[in-house]
Design a protein around this nucleic acid. Structure first.
Lengths: 292, 292
DNA sequence: TTGCTCCTCACGTCACGTGAGGTGGC
DNA sequence: TTGCTCCTCACGTCACGTGAGGTGGC
């Protein structure tokens, strides 16, 4: 069909369609007279583009979403938009304060720390691949709402940025990447990640309760970790790579200490986590052997 | 001081400052050699621009904010951003559904009704001046979350758009505008409007309770409305103009009926409102005379 | 031939960033 | 003279919109 009909079917203007053609988002055949001939598939594709554009994705982003047969790209973008929404809400709150007559210089500082926090979160998402990046990003985002006021915080912020900008990228073999994608395709979206984070939080806040309530699961898990099956599994390989990466990239030596300096709530979280971990080790000393 | 120093003091780049100069947001003097000489006032102004730009205001918006000595413009923009935030949140929810694997064609409809709802809200804000526009906009925004699915709703939507695009603008004399501004400057911001709306909602949901609990206030109010003082007050003049406007513009004949068709929850609200009003009239029949 | 669609090309938008090329100050 | 700042002018960005000018189809 010709462009006019395509335009009507997709709710897109001709000019918009022409633009997407130029950007190679769609590639209809040409008729002998040079007119473009849109197929059913082209129309489907344009309809998707319409939706994605209305949702605020750039043409580049749309290109990768269309090329990606899994929903991984879409999930990443979704996490990104969540960060942006949070930032915009914080900005809206400042706008309200301004319209209420609060003065500019005070708010200017608040603004700066909002921007710095979201820069950290965005860079975290960029720095780590796939699902792992989303997890890391949402995990740390919770601790980034505190204003940066002291010079210690400021230099910690700068260390973090330098780390994230220069850290070697985490490389997984294609096989492992595929494994991760396959296994996170359905189950892990923004909401599930949030739930997971929330569960972790509750278990470290009250480790005794967690340990007694989940005795069975924990023991099954430990048994699995000692099995041959686990030792040869992709998930173990990924874990090994991660530990190696964390040890050599500066993640443990630079990033984590800086995060603790930047965010009081994160430092507190870590302390709790260590306590909980001690209790776990007391109850299951065999874990020590597992990690070596 | 020269542009370099101004840039350092304000956190703006030279190019950004030059752009604001071109847009006439600031107007520094020139030295004999043609160099620009920024005053303390210019710097203050640039600092404000910095904050407002970070908050996402366009240069045109910033221009009106800077020109406006009251906070009225800022308040309007704040309401506008609230609408945008709501829309973006709805869009983010759709993005999540997509990344969860839901199909495009279903979501495309949802998308359309999100956009239509926010168009109505935005046009409401544009169509009425000052505080009144903000109130009207937030008042109706609550009823605009329902999807547009039937053809009755669709044509009601179109009627509303046509009404808002063509309605004569509500004109108040400068004196009355000033009065409104003076009296809404402090007390009415987004949050206060919300509270007011919430209070109204509760009183019409349970008119008996409202009437008995607020007996004294209502009676004092009625007495005031019968006084000579009220008859000569600006608020009475504004009310007269509003009633006239509502009667002649099509607000009552076109807009309100269309809103009822568009939104079931608004229709319900109106019914409740009428019931509550009847009860009020039963208790205070003298109101009938007041309105003539 | 007329009125319509199709094509490509060019220029505008918004808030700057990135130079280029020329002048001024020390 | 050198290295710095200042000035203005031009072009690029992103996702199109608004024509202009020419061709094709009925």
């Amino acid at each position: 069909m010709l462009i006019n009909e395509a335009s009507k079917l997709t709710n897109l203007t001709k000019k918009a369609i022409e633009y997407y053609l130029e950007q190679k988002l769609v590639n209809p055949n040409r008729l002998e007279n040079g007119y473009r001939d849109f197929s059913e598939d082209d129309i489907e594709c344009l309809k998707k583009i319409y939706v994605l554009r209305k949702l605020g994705l750039s043409t580049e982003e749309i290109k990768s979403v269309l090329a990606d047969k899994t929903n991984n790209t879409l999930q990443r973008i979704s996490v990104q938009r969540e960060l942006i929404l949070q930032r915009d809400q914080a900005k809206k709150a400042i706008l309200d304060q301004l319209s209420f007559g609060k003065n500019y210089s005070e708010l200017s500082k608040e603004l700066r720390s909002i921007e710095q926090s979201s820069t950290v979160a965005e860079k975290l998402l960029e720095s780590f691949p796939g699902y792992y990046g989303q997890f890391i990003c949402l995990h740390f985002a919770r601790f980034l709402n505190e204003p940066i006021t002291t010079s210690v915080q400021q230099s910690a912020y700068e260390e973090i940025i330098a780390f994230l900008d220069n850290a070697p990228s985490l490389q997984l073999t294609e096989e492992l990447q595929l494994f991760l994608m396959e296994n996170t395709k359905q189950d892990f979206n923004t909401k599930n990640i949030r739930d997971l984070i929330e569960n972790t939080k509750q278990s470290i806040e009250n480790p005794d309760k967690f340990l007694s309530e989940n005795k069975e699961v924990i023991e099954r898990y430990l048994a699995y970790k000692q099995s041959e099956e686990y030792k040869n599994s992709p998930i173990n390989k990924i874990k090994t790579i991660l530990i190696e990466f964390n040890n050599t990239s500066g993640y443990y030596d630079v990033f984590i200490p800086a995060m603790k300096k930047l965010s009081g709530s994160y430092a507190e979280y870590c302390t709790q986590m260590e306590l909980a971990n001690e209790k776990l080790l007391q109850q299951y000393p065999e874990i020590n052997q597992l990690n070596n």
